[in-house]
């Protein structure tokens, strides 16, 4: 369930996005679309690893999702991925499911915000 009125600054880093928009110009829309498509794939992979409960696999998938989120300034999504990555590195998978749900929720927020603003 998405929030009715998410506050963009809680979820996105404006400075990064402005910089990317300036850098990529017309291709910026492509970047956003690519990210959203890619995020869905990465989320599915992550969900798969959480189901398998192999800590190392969870860590790797979370690490990679974190990287691509950071790229597009999705800072809160990146922070959640990082939390999961840190737990997995310590071998703690008890919070994995809960964090995965949070990540899914944050994804829908980011998806909404991006679509509203750029697409």
């Amino acid at each position: 369930m998405s929030e009715q009125n998410p506050e963009p600054s809680d979820h996105l880093d404006e400075a990064t996005l402005n910089e990317l928009e300036a850098l990529l110009e017309d291709d910026f829309v492509d970047l956003v679309e690519t990210f959203l498509k890619d995020a869905q794939v990465r989320y599915d992979e992550l969900a798969q690893t959480v189901k398998s409960t192999v800590a190392e696999d969870i860590r790797r998938a979370a690490h990679s999702f974190k990287g691509s989120s950071l790229n597009v300034g999705a800072t809160r999504l990146a922070a959640l991925c990082r939390e999961l990555e840190d737990h997995a590195r310590e071998g703690r998978i008890v919070y994995a499911k809960e964090l995965l749900e949070n990540i899914h929720h944050e994804m829908t927020v980011v998806d909404t915000l991006f679509r509203q603003r750029y697409l």
């Binding site: 970047l31 690519t34 990679s64 990287g67 790229n71």
Partner: peptide
Amino acid sequence: DDNETDRMILRAIVQQE
């Protein structure tokens, strides 16, 4: 880079140079 968004960003930076 296996991540397409990374490649897009890097390509833009490098091409700008």
